[in-house]
């Protein structure tokens, strides 16, 4: 166990999995030099055959992953920023998400599409999106969103070992150094969330980088005598319905914190699941704290205005409790 930040933890998972299985290959723009640190040293350790610098060509990159997977490899397609998922979306939506189904399960497609998502870095609108709402609707891909370095390691290793296309989406920076297990078989199962704080008054379901903010909000609410059940969702496809429904049964109130825009977001989908399946346990409306319905602005003062923060979460819950 050692304290690590997000990018070194991702790097550790990649090193371990590439060492474990020589069918794991990785390619992407600047994979060798590594823009953000996820792939640092991989080319030195595993060679230019297995760790390839690609041209800037997301269209072919996303499709190539499907072809290489069908032919027996476990490719990791490193797309850098989440917005570039849109650039390569044809092969994602029309091939990766559908080929296995269209061919009646003839083929396994163990692909990991990796990208950093979200704002908070003055990277402006084309490098700050949260693209998972579109991915969640494809049906044929899994989507995981780690919240910190420990979950980043465990989920990436599970994603690489999974036989389905998995989108592995992480915050670019953020987070704090966390204890990351050294165990080279440390896996967090896809489809399982983690309850990271227990309380009886309200459930917060948080996704990705919002989890740290939700944790900070939880502490503030605890100080005010409000008990929070905090669920770090981790997987968006599939969603751990049991855990969120059980928490709702306990607290009767749910706030979902999602950095995506609200329309057809993870938050709105979870809200639909809960009102379908656990309506009678609700004591108040399900609330969603999401990014405002605009493109992400550049200037820090504007950007922090549109991205949910701790105060937004606290205020939302206080208002919710006042309703009763």
């Amino acid at each position: 166990m050692s304290k690590q930040r997000m990018m070194p933890a991702i790097n550790l998972a990649l090193q371990e999995e590439m060492k474990r299985d020589n069918k794991v290959i990785l390619y992407g723009e600047d994979a060798g030099i590594s823009l953000l640190g996820q792939t640092t040293g991989l080319q030195e350790n595993f060679g230019k055959d297995r760790v390839r610098d690609t041209p800037i060509c997301e269209n072919i990159m996303t499709g190539m992953a499907v072809g290489a997977a069908a032919a027996g490899y476990r490719p990791i397609c490193h797309l850098l920023y989440g917005n570039f998922i849109y650039t390569g979306f044809d092969s994602i939506a029309n091939q990766a998400a559908k080929l296995k189904y269209m061919t009646a399960g003839q083929v396994k497609l163990p692909v990991v599409y990796m990208a950093v998502i979200g704002g908070g870095r003055s990277a402006a609108a084309q490098h700050s999106d949260i693209p998972y709402p579109a991915l969640m609707n494809l049906g044929g891909v899994k989507v995981v969103v780690p919240s910190n370095s420990r979950t980043a390691k465990g989920l990436l290793k599970s994603a690489i070992r999974d036989d389905n296309p998995v989108f592995y989406l992480t915050a670019a920076g953020g987070g704090r150094p966390e204890e990351v297990p050294d165990d080279d078989n440390y896996l967090i199962p896809i489809g399982k969330s983690e309850v990271i704080n227990q309380g009886n008054d309200v459930t917060i379901i948080s996704i990705g980088s919002m989890t740290l903010k939700a944790l900070q909000a939880t502490k503030k609410l605890n100080d005010k005598g409000i008990g929070v059940d905090l669920i770090d969702l981790l997987s968006l496809v599939p969603i751990d319905e049991d855990t969120i429904i059980n928490s709702l049964k306990k607290t009767g109130r749910v706030v979902i914190v999602d950095e995506a825009r609200d329309i057809c977001s993870a938050a709105s989908h979870i809200s639909a699941i809960l009102s379908d399946k656990a309506f009678k346990y609700l004591k108040s409306p399900i609330k969603r704290v999401t990014v405002k319905d605009v493109a992400i602005p550049y200037s820090p003062i504007l950007e922090s205005h549109v991205i949910p923060d701790v105060a937004d979460i606290v205020n939302c819950i206080e208002e919710l409790l006042e309703l009763n």
Partner: peptide
């Protein structure tokens, strides 16, 4: 998809090469 098979074939070619 017109040209939709392009990436798939390139991926398979990469696998064969490796």
């Amino acid at each position: 998809v017109v040209a939709g098979g392009m990436g798939l074939a390139v991926g398979a070619a990469l696998a064969s090469k490796m």
